[in-house]
């Protein structure tokens, strides 16, 4: 019974899904802008690439820029490296450039300039190789609500070309990984938001990608569902999968990530382990609750200014560098 559904209409739906994702780079908004590399960049990126190869690097980025046709620099000079096996986080508000950066890594957008090597492949010359070795969980879930959990994963297997003989094992393994084995035969439309996200994460893993992008995977979920999802992301990372997560939630970044980059206006303004970043804040924090109105505080603050060398808010990033 299952097979008949597999080869019927919804199968093409899945393919359309994936195609939409993959074809996005054809209509890249950067086509009007030429590369803007300076000659100095070449030597530097060559060095990076050769040393990275020996260290087993999942993502190696040198001075990435992405400028939209209207002149907006969505990514403005990002240089970073993610070693294999790391749980790395992009933290920043909407519009900071997190998703755009990930889309470049996933070959869905072409960079305006800079070098980007993902799983050892260049985004410009070997996008196909990259797509075969990454999993991408977009903000919008790509599961089919009319299909069961099992069917969804089975279709993903088909779309990603998992050998027929391995599909059943793969489906069972992934249902188990995200604890959906008990509801394998239930339609996805009956699932809670958190369950849908778990299923979506499972479908992104069918081809056993060594690198997975999770783009704001818990936005809109309640705290309980969010917590639960974190556990699955940890499991995926424990299997040796490198994860690049974007999030607006500070707690999520703190709980999950080995290392973080804070992104603002297309630039990494701070990076390090959560502990390092906290240390750079400098010392400890005294929270004082006061009785009375804002005006009193403001007055008190203005008096304090003369005795303090720094006051908030500061116009520029003021974290000490590592």
């Amino acid at each position: 019974m299952l097979t008949s559904i597999v080869i019927s209409e919804p199968a093409s739906k899945v393919e359309v899904h994936r195609c939409t994702v993959y074809c996005t780079n054809m209509s890249s908004p950067t086509s009007d802008d030429g590369p803007r590399e300076s000659p100095d960049d070449y030597g530097a990126s060559e060095q990076r690439a050769s040393s990275a190869a020996t260290e087993r690097t999942a993502i190696d980025v040198d001075d990435l820029e992405l400028v939209y046709a209207d002149g907006t620099a969505a990514v403005d000079g990002v240089t970073m490296r993610i070693p294999e096996g790391e749980f790395f986080g992009f933290l920043g508000p909407n519009g900071a450039g997190k998703t755009t950066t990930i889309k470049v890594f996933a070959t869905l957008l072409s960079p305006t300039s800079g070098e980007v090597v993902v799983n050892g492949f260049d985004v410009r010359s070997e996008p196909r190789k990259i797509r075969e070795t990454i999993g991408y969980m977009a903000q919008e879930t790509s599961i089919d609500p009319e299909l069961t959990a099992e069917e969804n994963i089975r279709f993903a297997c088909e779309a990603y070309g998992v050998p027929r003989g391995e599909r059943s094992d793969r489906v069972a393994e992934l249902l188990d990984l995200v604890d959906l084995g008990d509801v394998a035969d239930k339609r996805a439309e009956e699932f809670s938001g958190g369950m849908k996200k778990r299923l979506d994460a499972a479908t992104a893993l069918v081809h056993r990608p060594p690198l997975v992008f999770l783009d704001e995977p818990t936005t809109g979920l309640d705290p309980k569902a969010r917590n639960r999802l974190w556990e699955y992301f940890r499991r995926i990372n424990d299997r040796g999968t490198t994860i690049l997560l974007t999030t607006q939630y500070l707690e999520e970044a703190d709980q999950l990530c080995d290392r973080l980059a804070v992104i603002l206006d297309g630039t990494i303004v701070a990076d390090g382990t959560p502990a390092e970043l906290k240390r750079r804040v400098g010392g400890e924090v005294l929270d004082v609750e006061l009785e009375g109105g804002e005006s009193e505080h403001a007055e008190w603050k203005s008096q304090r200014k003369s005795t303090c060398s720094r006051t908030q808010p500061s116009p520029k990033p003021r974290l000490a560098s590592a």
Partner: peptide, 9 residues
């Protein structure tokens, strides 16, 4: 990390 973010931005 809230304090980190506050310090940066």
């Amino acid at each position: 990390l809230d304090d980190v973010f506050l310090a940066i931005t």
